[in-house]
Amino acid sequence: MSGELIVKAEYSEKDAEIFVSGEIDIYNAQQFKEKIYRIVENSTGDVSIDCSGLNYMDSTGLGVFVGALKKARQNERNIHIINIKDHIKKLFVITGLDKLFIIH
């Protein structure tokens, strides 16, 4: 099913790269949160989230991104969002969250 949420992580020496694909809504936001938080906690450097496979997200997903950023910032680390589709990036822009994240 194309909408199924898949989260994979790759770790380098310090940093972590997360690959997200599928759809994030109220049904799987909690599952997304648990996976992302665990990866952020396990990383000692910055975290990049590659959203090239992410096809849909609403405010439930945005909330998880914000929570993950708070966790990263507590340890003076950052979250980079890469390859995000325009219609999802729009959510960050209209809510002003594009100013908090580093979006490439």
Partner: peptide, 13 residues
């Protein structure tokens, strides 16, 4: 269409 989908999803959630 994508915008409408998100708006509908927000209300449902």
């Amino acid at each position: 269409v994508e915008d409408i989908k998100v708006a509908v999803s927000e209300v449902c959630s």
